[in-house]
Amino acid sequence: MVPISWYIAVAAVLFLIGVSGVLMRRNIIVVLMSIELMLNSVNINFVAFSYMLGDMTGQIFSIFTITVTAAEVAVALGILIALVRNRKTFNVDEIDTLKG
C-alpha cells in the first residue's frame, strides 16, 4: 500500500512548482499553465483524502474544481487574446495599465 502522505507530498511539490512558475516566469501563457498545475495539485489532495477517509465528498469537490478551472481557462484565454490584440506583449511586467 502507498501511504497517503506520499500523495500529499507529490501534491505539495507540484504546487510549489506551480508557484515558482507564477512568480518567476514572465511569459503570461506559462503563468496561466502554472496556475493549472497548482489547481491540479489541489485536486490530488482532495482525491487522496477522499480515499483515505472513505468519503466521496472529496471526489465531488475535485469535479467542481475541474469544472471551475475549465471556465477560468476559457475566460483567461479570451482576455489574453483581447490583450495581445491591443498591447502586443506577452510579458506580465509590461501589463500594468491598472496601476494608474
Partner: peptide, 13 residues
C-alpha cells in the same frame, strides 16, 4: 458559472 464563462470568453475574444 460555465454558462457565464462561455459568454464571457466569446465576448472577450
Amino acid at each position: 458559472i460555465l454558462l457565464a464563462a462561455l459568454v464571457a470568453a466569446v465576448i472577450m475574444a
